[in-house]
């Protein structure tokens, strides 16, 4: 292996048919670790077969190919490699490192993709948070209020949805189970919209309470839209409709 006496502006190697490096330019020595004196040691694993095939297929006409090379500074750098065979069966190879601006663009593209991905996570995290807040709100929309040893009240706030009724059912049933209530009031004054699946769940809750206590459940503060919905279900056995909390309370307090 000898050093070329030409002063060349690019790294340059001369290689024989076996891949052995015969001579090298000054810049080639600067860029590459030539201690193994073989072209294989300079080419990335994934580019070796490419180099092998293309160089063996080419003749005296120069060919250009992209190869990933191992340099002294970096284990993987993309080069344009120009190769030409001469009459002595030696290939002259010149190496032009790929334009950095290309790399910058690729890095920018990658960073935008990463940002998109992380924005996606942030959105997902916010969604999780929001779901938790909504669940919490549902839980707080049906507080259990013991008015006396025998009378309790559960006012419902907001829209009646299946999720909301599910969220309050558990604590409601447990509170009723722990006490000894003769009357259970649902105050529906503050109810907004009514969803069909919400009503189904609500009626299930009322029936369960009825089975648990054996008492009639009282619904108060029913607005027309709710009355219309409830009318579809035959509730007479389980519930009693009363006009207002005031009336109900006065009955019980004068008892």
């Amino acid at each position: 292996m000898e050093r070329l006496n030409l002063s060349l502006p690019l790294p340059c190697l001369k290689v024989n048919r076996d891949g052995r490096i015969v001579s090298y330019s000054a810049l080639a020595e600067d860029h590459f670790d030539l201690s193994k004196a073989h072209i294989r040691s300079l080419v990335d694993e994934g580019s070796i077969s490419k180099l092998g095939r293309i160089s063996s297929e080419s003749g005296p006409v120069p060919v250009k190919m992209e190869l990933n090379m191992k340099t002294k500074k970096n284990p993987l750098v993309l080069f344009d490699v120009y190769l030409q065979w001469d009459t002595e069966n030696r290939a002259t190879m010149m190496f032009v490192q790929k334009d950095r601006s290309n790399e910058e663009l690729i890095e920018k593209l990658a960073s935008i993709q990463i940002r998109l991905a992380s924005t996606d996570f942030e959105l997902l995290e916010k969604k999780d948070e929001l779901e938790q807040v909504l669940r919490r709100m549902d839980e707080l929309s049906g507080p259990f209020i013991p008015l006396s040893d025998t009378l309790c009240m559960i006012p419902l706030f907001g829209d009646i949805t299946a999720d909301k009724i599910n969220a309050i059912s558990d604590s409601c049933l447990q509170s009723v189970f722990r006490g000894n209530y003769e009357a259970i009031l649902f105050d529906l004054t503050a109810v907004g919209e009514v969803h069909a699946d919400g009503i189904d769940k609500f009626i299930m809750l009322v029936k369960t309470l009825n089975f648990m206590t054996g008492n009639v459940i009282k619904l108060i503060g029913i607005k027309p839209n709710l009355a219309k919905e409830l009318n579809h279900h035959h509730l007479d056995h389980w519930v009693q409709f009363n006009h207002s909390l005031k009336e109900e309370l006065s009955t019980y307090l004068h008892h």
């Binding site: 077969s49 490419k50 293309i54 992209e66 993309l78 790929k98 593209l109």
Partner: peptide, 20 residues
């Protein structure tokens, strides 16, 4: 196709982004 010298790494990047 890259191994057969028919396309460049830049082409591959474009294909990757599209596939993504």
């Amino acid at each position: 196709l890259w191994e057969s010298n028919e396309i460049t790494v830049a082409d591959e990047h474009l294909a990757t982004a599209t596939c993504d």
